[in-house]
């Protein structure tokens, strides 16, 4: 996390996709023409929508979609935290575990993997090798893994909600005021589900 504020340069935003369905990213794209406003305020430096392989340094805001379900998720989450001023837990999977965490009720993930990869495939069921990242014993909400600055619930958060929260954040950072108070958020901005 760098200490500089956003003054005097363009803001850098990123998105990250952990254990989620990408619905939150779809909702992000639903910003439609607002994306142009956004592009005027900031550069998108990382995310499923870019072709960047390594999480870059000095990011101002990262929207992280998805729960933490496997070891790759943990590593990406840590990289995000290490290089981002304001980490946003983006959508219900990141905030609560949500659908991704349904498997927690089933217990041992090894058993789950065996069911999916060995029992259920039509042909040649086999346990996955190192291509598939190791599952965590339990799916965790993002804030159980890294400290979070802003939470944006919703499944997915609506485009209006993303717009309201993100623009408020960017405006505040651009003005060098750090993370703004988000107490104004009402039902349109906060509701789970």
């Amino acid at each position: 996390m760098s200490e500089h504020n956003g003054e005097g340069r363009r803001l850098r935003i990123a998105t990250a996709w952990l254990g989620g369905c990408s619905g939150c990213h779809m909702s992000f794209l639903d910003l439609d023409e607002v994306l142009f406003d956004l592009a005027e305020k900031a550069d998108l430096v990382y995310g499923p929508l870019t072709d960047v392989k390594e999480f870059p340094p000095d990011v101002d805001v990262t929207l992280v979609e998805g729960a933490v379900a496997n070891q790759d998720n943990v590593e990406l989450a840590k990289a995000v935290r290490a290089n981002t001023r304001v980490v946003v837990s983006f959508g219900d999977c990141a905030v609560t575990g949500n659908v991704t965490s349904l498997r927690n009720a089933l217990g041992d993930p090894a058993e789950l993997v065996r069911r999916v990869y060995v029992e259920h495939p039509d042909i040649r069921g086999a346990m996955p090798t190192d291509v598939v990242p190791a599952l965590l014993p339990y799916v965790e909400a993002l804030h159980e893994v890294i400290p979070i600055d802003v939470y944006m619930p919703g499944c997915p958060p609506s485009a209006d909600r993303i717009k309201a929260t993100l623009l408020a954040l960017l405006d505040s950072l651009a003005a060098g005021e750090g993370i703004p108070s988000l107490d104004w958020r009402g039902p349109e901005d906060l509701r789970f589900g």
């Binding site: 837990s89 905030v95 609560t96 979070i148 944006m152 958020r185 039902p187 906060l190 509701r191």
Partner: peptide
């Protein structure tokens, strides 16, 4: 109630 009480995470 969660919305009313600004519960944005648990």
């Amino acid at each position: 109630l969660a919305t009313e009480h600004h519960v944005d995470h648990i």
